[in-house]
Nucleic acid binder design. Sequence first.
DNA 1: GTACAAAACGAACGATCGTGCTTTATGGAG
DNA 2: CTCCATAAAGCACGATCGTTCGTTTTGTAC
Lengths: 237, 237
Amino acid sequence: MKAVSEIRKQQHNDARGAKTRQDILQAAVHVASAEGLEGLTIGRLADELRMSKSGLFAHFGSKEELQLAVVSKARDIFVHEVVDPAFTRERGLVRLLAMLDEWLAYVGRSVFRGGCFFMASAIEFDSRTGPVRDLIAELSRSWLDALDAEARFAQTLGQLDSRVDTSQLAFELHALVHGANWYYNLFQDKRAFERARNGILERLRQGATPGLLRVLAEKSSKRLKATQRKPRRKESR
Amino acid sequence: MKAVSEIRKQQHNDARGAKTRQDILQAAVHVASAEGLEGLTIGRLADELRMSKSGLFAHFGSKEELQLAVVSKARDIFVHEVVDPAFTRERGLVRLLAMLDEWLAYVGRSVFRGGCFFMASAIEFDSRTGPVRDLIAELSRSWLDALDAEARFAQTLGQLDSRVDTSQLAFELHALVHGANWYYNLFQDKRAFERARNGILERLRQGATPGLLRVLAEKSSKRLKATQRKPRRKESR
DNA sequence: GTACAAAACGAACGATCGTGCTTTATGGAG
DNA sequence: CTCCATAAAGCACGATCGTTCGTTTTGTAC
């Protein structure tokens, strides 16, 4: 039985290739957030990584596959930066607010050079067709649904008035973060985040049941998380 | 004195050139809203207009000049489609609401193929530098300021509670339309406009003085304007 | 008609795009 | 050390990019 060694070998070889692939995607995702998924170019990316176009290209087989991989990678980063931290909090209104706060903080610390990756790529691809557009729409939808679901859960806990239309609420909360991303990146003005957070808290306060207002009041006095832009290291070799 | 004839000649020649220039910009602005200002390509545009690349190019001298002209043209269209209609209404809350309604209607009837031109180009250019980005930022700012200014005017009329932070309000109203544009173009779902409008009316209702609630109540029952997508004519010659 | 300026064109430039095909390097298995 | 799959490189392709330049067409003034 040679299965084990084959698997091991494959693990090794895959590991070498996979490491390169991850390096490529790491760089690609940042280029794409600044220049767009279409502006992301294989030659430019190969230069940046000091490897050949064809060597890089072989990892994906087509530009569309590269774009799909980049979107998936961006999803992973979003999950790591926003979803995971928020999901350590208790379910209900607390988690809903955490989702929005983490989201705002991630925009503010410029995890991607060009603002929130998904807002940029959604607007870039919304008038096209094909698998890239479909993937972006699916991921956007699931995040919006997650906000909605958490609001509904808060209703079952009695934290949120059961008469509140949660999909309306999710739409508005989403729009506020969207607006912050737009305002911050266009005007380089961090007041974007105060404004968005004011709006968010106001929306939640409106729908919160009397007992829960304490929780929100406490949250609103907490300062926003650090939103310092990550220093771009200048490669000099 | 030959000035008159010279002027007349120049007027004529300029007119011929200017007509072409407007035709180019008319097409360019739609291509750009769908493919982006960078995706807008001179060769592609020349093909679409059945003219030569060089002939088209000569009107602008550089791609950046073309982009600037496209943004200006988009501004003119926005003014014609949104600002002018809204500015026929009386100043104050009525006009503020009209600005938002016209804006939503313009998104909904897809005046540009790729949704609101300025939202798309703002996100495309927000992480760049140069005159194109500057122009986009300036125009975005002035529209946001116009919303703010109208809200402040409503305060002087006593239609809006003077304690309302109008720049916060303008931010939120802007974000709601932004959200509608995103949702509608990504999911092809017209509920985007109901949701945005619900949010807008709620925001205004919160800040409205008691006497003005009637006005808003009447507005909220009015149906949204036609949001039928303009049929794309298929050229077949 | 002729003269003339503006508009439009045609052809080409070097650069870069995405994508194939062939060859070389790499590194663990035997 | 040899073998061999995989990773990476090299090279070239047709297409298209923005741009330049010299020529031709166009429309009016005289």
